[in-house]
Amino acid sequence: MFRRVRLSALLVLTACVSAAAADSPQSLTEDQIREAQFLESLSIPTPGELFAAFGKIGKPDWAAFFRKQPPAPHTSRPLIALNLGARIADGFLAAEAQDRQQAKNVSTEIKLLAKSLGLEQEFMVRSNSIAGFADSRRWDALDEELEAVQAELAAAMAGRRDAELATLMSLGCWLRAVDVAGAQLAANYTPQAARILRQPAVAESFAARLDALPAKIKTLPAVAELQKRLPALGATLSLPAETPPSAEAVNGMHTLISGMISLFVAPEK
């Protein structure tokens, strides 16, 4: 009888292991890894994601990173698109800081920039929603609204054969988000926080997209300089996972990004 019990137990154990093996996924093959697509819609973290991750470590004073000066007026559509993206990131920052007035101020600035690109109508409805969510302190909804704003403006740009402006808007947004995260990290460095910043391949993806822009945009001094500096930024954001950037590297990265942002924020010459 004891032998029968032992055999039954062995059969049950075998069945459990088989079931577990059937459920556990196999590793991807090298071909599959190569085939995995980099999709802008999915592969680039939003400012909201980045700030949410940093917000879990300590209590960042997000308001300290507000840009109080309104954007300098530009006539160059590529520079306006870069600034528009950066302002959208500022909207996420206002939401993270839970600052109603700043959210509304940024919304007004986004509207003016969208107007400069002939996209005011696309933003009108969202502008009211942003103010409404800010007033009712629905910060998560405000985050979602800002991402929707960016998506709709990008779709409108593509519809008007201005897809390159959507690329620049996306770049401006990502740079400003990393700028804020870098500033927070530079002021309050910990290796744990430095590990959050890692975003391999994003800078490389933007560099490739800038390279594919029409020559008349690619050769604009600000755009050309951004493309030149992206690899250095990418290198800091692509260090191995077990080797977070040092405090010195973070300071260097923050200086680099601040310089990149000033390329398109500064008044046109």
């Binding site: 991807l28 599959q32 085939e35 995995a36 697509q37 980099f38 999709l39 999915l42 592969s43 680039i44 973290p45 994601e49 980045l50 949410a52 991750a53 940093f54 879990k56 470590i57 590990r195 959050i196 890692r198 975003q199 391999p200 391949a201 994003v202």
Partner: peptide
Amino acid sequence: LARVNLLAGN
């Protein structure tokens, strides 16, 4: 298959 960048802590 698609690549996504995910952030530690989220």
